[in-house]
């Protein structure tokens, strides 16, 4: 099972995403932004970072990278695609997912372990969770505020396409942002397309896949959190099934 991870200039979290793929039991494959070759992968991760320096808008220039044309075609053909943080911003810029991300409402970079409610377990990337389950994975960004017009928000709600919502229980952050860390509409942390194969989220599941290197789990110990791993094992299972 080959899962590709795309590296753009300015990508930061490709190594962690490759590692998460390996820990989940799949074969990690590095994909390069400048090559229009998906190397026979069966799923794709667009990792976090500041691709092309986030110049113009986050994800705006990556959208036109040679590899993205192939990614868009593959996604439209049903291949599982996961966009994390900057990868989510890129998926929005390509219009594979609706809406856009603007600067956090409190205007600061925020890094914290963020509780999320899993609302949709029918996607390729979330079948390993239970509906309503609260998971805790790292969140770290400056442009994390999800916005969309009312019609799009209503559509996402009605079709059950909100995959993750921000939940209370973070240990720190600006006043007024205890649950929703950035002002995102409807507390949206992650969404999916109508087919359920494309998922984008701002928090980072790839940083919570191995005990000792994950977020703190209150009551269970420091750095013990592995709540992100199920995203990668979910896609593995959905491809085998």
């Amino acid at each position: 099972m080959r899962i590709g991870v795309v590296t753009f200039p300015g990508t930061l979290d490709d190594r962690d995403a490759l590692r998460a793929v390996r820990i989940a039991g799949a074969e990690p494959v590095t994909l390069w932004h400048g090559e229009d070759d998906l190397q026979d992968v069966e799923a794709i991760v667009l990792p976090g970072g500041f691709s092309y320096g986030d110049y113009l808008r986050a994800g705006a220039i990556s959208r036109f990278a040679p590899v993205m044309e192939k990614v868009v075609d593959a996604a439209k053909g049903g291949m599982p695609v996961l966009g994390i943080c900057n990868g989510f911003q890129i998926l929005c810029e390509t219009h594979l997912l609706p809406g856009a991300m603007i600067k956090n409402a409190h205007r600061a970079f925020l890094c914290r372990d963020q509780p999320l409610t899993v609302e949709n377990t029918r996607t390729a990337w979330t079948s390993g969770y239970e509906a309503g389950q609260v998971i805790r994975i790292p969140l770290k960004n400056q442009d994390g505020q999800y916005v969309a017009d009312e019609r799009t928000l209503a559509e996402l709600e009605d079709e059950g396409r909100i995959v993750f919502r921000y939940a209370a229980g973070a240990t720190h952050g600006p006043a007024g942002f205890e649950a929703n860390p950035n002002g995102s509409r409807h507390d949206i942390a992650g969404i999916t397309n109508a087919a359920g194969n494309v998922v984008g989220l701002m928090p980072h599941p790839e940083h919570a896949v191995e005990a000792g290197f994950g977020p703190d789990q209150p009551g269970e110990g420091t750095r013990s959190g592995t709540d992100g791993l199920a995203m990668f094992t979910s896609v593995l299972r959905s491809m085998v099934a």
Partner: peptide, 13 residues
């Protein structure tokens, strides 16, 4: 320009 209905955090700052 940012759309009128979109909060503009930079302008606010």
């Amino acid at each position: 320009m940012p759309k009128p209905e979109i909060l503009d955090p930079q302008g606010k700052a």
